[in-house]
């Protein structure tokens, strides 16, 4: 909002004060994320800028914390870096293992959440859907109900999932299946919200047009509906993946030692012996989130263009 020409001096002062306030709030929002990036290259095990770092002395910077991400947990980290070293790193390094777990769990949780969520969003978009509002409220609630309550309930349920019908079929705690199910459930609200958003303003007559031109339901879905809602589906999938990739409480409650994920490792690191290695992981995660954010923004603009929505 440019200052109008009729503004009096007091308004001018207030206008510049307002700009300063906004700048400060933007700094508050962004500085915590930016400050860890240089600190992760700290040569010293401190969480503050050393004098060498401030004078841009190359000696003040190092990649040691990134290297430690690979070596911590290895059986023989000091041998020359050949194929044995890499095999050892791939199999044993704690952070590498955690990353593998995070990707595996995140991947399957995303597939499950996106598949079920997209179908459900298509059903919910139909105004004839019975109990639409109630069903929507139930499907969104995993986002609203505190995670600690969900994790507590899942812990009870997973310890004997067949107990309700009087059977005993083992436990779901400490299994990948259990975690994938938990994370998929947490991601579903995001899929529903993003796909429903793409479906608002979706021209239902396009479906009828396709049908009247002789397309069967499958062709209609893949050739007409899917291309239009795809941006929403992908954003939803990304949200679901990020939710799983960033989730720690369900992992704390339900995972065994074999299912440690990156957030779980970070949690340990923050609670116990905080080392700058955490900052190295954090920096990598920030880079990933920048990539994800750009993808989602591009998709959103594409979706708006496709649906003929202008502006934001």
């Amino acid at each position: 909002m440019p200052l109008p020409s009729y503004a009096d001096p007091l308004e001018r002062v207030w206008y510049y004060a307002y700009l300063v306030i906004c700048t400060l709030i933007f700094i508050f929002l962004i500085s915590p994320i930016l400050v860890i990036i240089p600190l992760s290259f700290n040569a010293e095990p401190y969480f503050t800028f050393t004098e060498k770092m401030l004078s841009f002395d190359p000696q003040g910077y190092s990649l040691r914390w990134y290297d430690s991400l690979l070596t911590v947990g290895m059986q023989a980290p000091d041998i020359p870096r050949g194929s044995t070293w890499y095999a050892d790193m791939w199999a044993n390094a704690a952070w590498v293992k955690a990353a593998k777990n995070s990707v595996i769990i995140g991947f399957w949780a995303t597939i499950l959440a996106t598949g079920l969520g997209t179908l459900a969003a298509l059903g919910l978009a139909n105004p004839l859907m019975p109990y639409r509002r109630l069903v929507m409220a139930i499907l969104i609630s995993p986002m609203i109900v505190p995670i600690i309550i969900i994790a507590t309930g899942m812990f009870f349920f997973y310890s004997n999932p067949c107990g309700l019908v009087g059977l005993d079929c083992g436990r779901l705690t400490s299994t990948y299946t259990g975690l994938v199910m938990a994370h998929a459930m947490l991601g579903i609200p995001f899929v529903i919200i993003t796909v429903t958003a793409t479906l608002t303003g979706f021209d239902q007559s396009l479906i009828r047009a396709a049908q009247s031109l002789g397309a069967n339901p499958r062709t209609t879905f893949f050739k007409v509906i899917m291309p239009l809602i795809l941006p929403g589906v992908i954003s939803g999938a990304l949200f679901a993946f990020v939710t799983s990739f960033d989730e720690v409480v369900a992992v704390l409650f339900l995972a065994g030692p074999d299912q440690q994920t990156i957030p779980r490792q970070m949690w340990n690191g923050i609670r116990e012996a905080i080392s700058p290695a955490i900052l190295a992981v954090a920096t990598i995660l920030v880079v990933i989130s920048i990539a994800l954010l750009s993808t989602v923004e591009l998709l959103r603009r594409r979706s708006d263009r496709l649906r003929g929505v202008t502006g934001r």
Binding site: L119, L122, L124, L128, M129, I138, L139, M181, A184
Partner: peptide, 30 residues
């Protein structure tokens, strides 16, 4: 209309069952 209603419900049903299993029942157990 009835057919459309049923189709909409069938689309939502798998997710509803999943959320019932992984969310509503655990809350019930609490």
């Amino acid at each position: 209309q009835r057919r459309a209603r049923r189709r909409a419900f069938l689309l939502v049903a798998p997710l509803l069952v999943f959320v019932l299993l992984t969310f509503v029942i655990p809350i019930g157990q609490i």
